Simulated assay, not measured.
Amino acid sequence: MTPTPPARFDHPRFIRLARPGGIEVTFMDWGATWLSCRVPVPGEAPREVLLAHPTPEDHATRGGYLGATVGRYANRIAESRLHRDGVTHALAAHPAGSRHQLHGGPDGFSHRRWQVTQQSDTVVTFSLDSPDGDQGFPGALHLDVVYTLTDAMSMAMEIRATVDAPCPVAPTQHAYFNLDAQPGSVLGHTLQLAASQYLPVDAELLPVDGPQPVAGTGFDFRTAHSIGNDYDHGWLLDAGQPAAVLTSSDGRLSMTLSTTMPALQVYTGGHLGGEPGRDSAPMVRNAGVAMEPGWLADSPNRAEWEQRTCWLEPMDVLIDHIRWCWTVSL
């Protein structure tokens, strides 16, 4: 049985951005959710490259975060605790039955109605205010997320945030991609990652150690090859180059992802099987791959790791970027 949508979920607002001859994207204000991305491919119909549920209500009630803007902190925080300078903050655990927190808690930013504060044919800005203590996080936060069609075949996301008390802030976009004309499993897609290190995790997907070299392991995607297996792991990105290149099974469509954030979580949708898809038919296992720029799992409590801190200080402004660019092979 599909859960009843929250009472505050009504009349979602939809925003369409497009450029002539280029990609066409659709968002809704609930969760600042990226619902659709249609990419023109010569000689065939435009390819819908995002997974989505059949109704907006499904996006509001189901747990896959399809296309949602997630936060305050995307990824997992161990034991739902923040530890810093001798102070511990207790966070709201999520999902139900877990001791840990995932993607900002049970009422994270993916489950909020955002304000549309700017809109044109090629740009939309979503804004959100989160009070002190929201899901256990310290400090009041203001967040703006700007999606821009930068050219016919590219879209950028700018994240801007401020806080009035020290807090880890790491929102991201949680779209699932499938670049095939006839979507099925993405394990036949080709993936390349600019990452020399990955994060080993335990059965609860929390760190067992710090980042380790990918060389000689099944986590080495420095040379492009088929995805092949289930993943829900974080990679620490090498600086100065695009984070990832994903290519469809038929080789016709590729997507390059670039980001200013230090890590990339890659999740191949192992729990998507049976979830209702865009056409209401059940999705297959591994129907899409989520590539989530951000920080490694439990980073707020791992100051010893060699990556930029995720803690935002009062009077500072967080500015981060993600860019997706599609290319077609004739």
Rank of each mutant, 00 (worst) to 15 (best):
P3V: 09
A7P: 05
A7F: 08
D10N: 12
H11Q: 15
P12L: 07
R16H: 11
P20R: 11
G21S: 10
G22R: 09
I23L: 15
V25Y: 01
F27L: 14
F27Y: 15
D29R: 11
W30F: 13
W34L: 05
C37A: 15
R38A: 14
R38L: 13
V39M: 04
P42C: 05
L50A: 08
L51S: 02
H53Y: 15
H53K: 04
P56T: 10
E57G: 14
H59V: 06
R62F: 08
G64F: 08
G64P: 01
Y65F: 15
L66W: 15
G67K: 07
T69W: 05
G71T: 03
R72F: 04
A78H: 12
E79Y: 08
E79L: 13
S80N: 10
L82G: 05
H83M: 11
D85I: 03
G86R: 14
V87D: 09
L91C: 09
A92T: 15
A93F: 04
A93N: 07
A96C: 09
G97V: 10
H100Q: 12
G104K: 06
D107V: 15
S110T: 07
R112H: 13
R113M: 10
W114V: 05
T122Q: 12
T122C: 07
V124R: 06
F126D: 01
F126K: 07
D129Y: 00
D129Q: 14
D134F: 08
G136Q: 12
H142L: 04
T148K: 09
M153S: 09
M155D: 02
E158M: 10
E158Q: 15
V163P: 02
D164H: 11
D164Y: 09
A165I: 08
P166S: 10
C167A: 15
A175M: 11
Y176V: 02
D180Y: 02
P183Y: 06
S185P: 08
S185D: 04
V186F: 06
L199V: 03
P200R: 03
P200A: 03
A203Y: 02
L205Q: 10
L205C: 07
L205H: 12
P207G: 07
Q212D: 00
Q212Y: 00
V214P: 01
A215N: 00
F219P: 00
F219M: 15
F221Y: 13
A224I: 06
A224N: 02
A224S: 12
H225L: 02
Y231I: 03
L236W: 03
D238W: 06
A239T: 14
P242T: 01
P242C: 05
V245A: 00
L246N: 00
L257V: 09
M261V: 03
V266A: 11
T268F: 11
G273Y: 11
G277F: 02
R278E: 07
R278S: 13
D279E: 14
A281H: 14
R285A: 14
P293E: 06
G294W: 04
L296H: 11
D298Y: 09
S299P: 01
N301T: 04
Q307L: 15
R308L: 09
T309W: 03
T309I: 04
C310K: 07
C310E: 07
W311F: 06
M315H: 14
D320H: 12
H321K: 13
I322C: 13
R323F: 00
W324T: 02
T327L: 04
T327Y: 00
V328D: 00
